[in-house]
Amino acid sequence: MNAGISRPTAVLGLAAVALSLVTLLGLPTPLQAVAAIAVLILLPGQALARLTPVTDFALRALLVLALGLAALTAVSTAMFYLAVWSWQACVVTMGVITILACIARARQEAVS
């Protein structure tokens, strides 16, 4: 089963776990910004874009940004409406979304 999971999928999932933890623990300002943007926007965007069969590089890159921003907007807005918002909760949720998307991608890879 593991043989069916590609290295990028595994790296993406592990990076989401690691960066979520360091973002929550806190880093010096420039590093915190880089880690937070990665874990909140870029990694979820990449994980979700990899679920689509888009092969065009430019469209894929655009979808990483658009899906990352859109997913974070949806999560943050929902948390505000439910009165459960905190930036830490958003980091955890986006990390979970990334990992779930990686699991879904791993299943796709295992089947194909």
Binding site: T23, Q32, A33, A36, I37, L40, I41, L69, L72, T73, A74, S76, T77, M79, F80, Y81, A83, V84, W85, S86, W87, C90, V91
Partner: peptide, 27 residues
Amino acid sequence: EGIDPDIDAYFNWPGFFALLATVLKAT
């Protein structure tokens, strides 16, 4: 940490501001 839509129009379309709040606080 919540949305009161009676404040003004912005709080009826809060998506971008929710995104901005999260990004600013987390980064």
